[in-house]
Computed example of a mutant assay.
Amino acid sequence: MSSTITIGFIPREQFSLAAESLQRIFDYTHIPFNLIVVDCNTPKVYWQQIEQVLDGRSHVEVIHKNHYLTPNQCKNLVIQQAKDDFVCFIESDVIVEEGWLSQLMAACEEHPADVAIPRIIEGRLGETKLHWDPNLGHIRSVQTTDGVKYEILPFTDEQQLDKGSHRRTIELSGEAHCQLYRRSVFDQVAPFDEEVVYLDWIDSSLALYNAKIPVVFEPKSVVHFWHPFPPRRDDLDYFFMRWDLERAQQDLDRIPKKWNLVQVTADLEFAMERNRIGQLHASMEELKALIPPQKPFILVDEDWLNSNEIIEGFRTIPFTEHNGQYWGAPTDDDTAIREFERLHQTGASAIVFLMHTFWWLEYYTRFHDYLRQKFPCVLQNERLIVFDLR
């Protein structure tokens, strides 16, 4: 008799991609499955899209909650309802490829293992960059002044998940965006810790390690992890709940104590970056107050916002520019200054640096000095630096 499986479909930080993600699951999963969808105060527009995908489908259960839930809370609801041999948790901003679930099932059955994780690619279909935490490799015990503690070490060269295409056992399960569990695992380990929000992938990895649950990495199973930049406005409330800095700091304080670690392999910076990204809508309002809508301005963003709805209504010039397209970072200060002067002469009213390009001003020091000496800096915060060129 073949094994049965439940897919638990849960939100992570947004809802806007859920219908597309769910449709891909139906289109590219060719083994029977039961589906549990967790709806935790999904904005109406996105829930209607999900309902269209679910319309007429069998073996589907929806868990409705009228308030936001964290990913771990959602997973625990799925565990309570799932009765199949396997449970696959997949977040609603994950896009699956052909045969993704069959490969995970085969890895668990044939390797064998109790948990299987796929190859996770950052970005849309067609992208190739692997998404993983290289710092979460393996564990050793170390003697400290406070007794024996555990130290998390990075992957060694032969362990790295971006190398090779062979199935292999790993000590720590890594990213939580898509994972297949034998249902029996939860007879050995506690459900997901609902106090943990920011460091959920580290916490669940250590729980499996502590219980000696074998985990297999199956690179033939491929999914894509995609988070729009920035999130849409109606996703922002949930997004900021997910990346609350106070809760993130609580995780950073709690996880080392919970698992007797020397230190945790993360810091607050990623949560801070997600917050800055969420605040980009407010940043665009700041730009509107500074730059008249009909005036073009130079945008230094390494093409992050190309065709993004957040810059609709602005007349942006990419820096550097060739035939209206972004042309890459300048080779040196002289190139940056020449390119800037050329674009300034076309009537650009300002030059705007987005947060992830602040390094340009540290790297191209003469270019930075040139701007500071010739033009007033009219806005500088953790998200934007703007020089008025008028």
Results as ranks from 00 to 15, higher is better:
residue 310 I to Y: 05
residue 55 D to A: 09
residue 295 K to T: 01
residue 296 P to D: 09
residue 388 D to M: 00
residue 327 W to A: 14
residue 211 A to N: 05
residue 107 A to Y: 03
residue 225 F to W: 11
residue 285 E to T: 11
residue 247 R to K: 14
residue 126 G to P: 07
residue 248 A to E: 01
residue 37 V to G: 03
residue 158 E to Y: 07
residue 368 H to C: 12
residue 355 M to R: 01
residue 300 V to T: 03
residue 28 Y to R: 15
residue 253 D to N: 11
residue 99 G to M: 09
residue 257 K to E: 03
residue 210 N to A: 11
residue 296 P to I: 08
residue 204 S to H: 01
residue 7 I to G: 05
residue 303 D to Y: 13
residue 331 T to P: 01
residue 366 R to Y: 09
residue 332 D to E: 06
residue 66 N to T: 10
residue 166 H to A: 13
residue 305 L to Q: 07
residue 150 Y to Q: 13
residue 117 I to F: 02
residue 228 P to E: 07
residue 32 P to R: 08
residue 204 S to A: 01
residue 340 F to L: 03
residue 376 P to C: 05
residue 57 R to Q: 15
residue 52 Q to A: 13
residue 307 S to A: 08
residue 11 P to D: 05
residue 217 F to I: 06
residue 273 E to M: 11
residue 124 R to I: 11
residue 261 L to K: 00
residue 133 D to P: 01
residue 204 S to I: 04
residue 97 E to I: 00
residue 373 Q to K: 15
residue 311 I to S: 13
residue 245 L to G: 00
residue 324 G to H: 10
residue 334 D to I: 09
residue 267 D to V: 01
residue 138 H to K: 12
residue 56 G to T: 01
residue 126 G to L: 08
residue 99 G to A: 12
residue 177 H to V: 12
residue 3 S to T: 09
residue 364 Y to A: 06
residue 383 R to A: 10
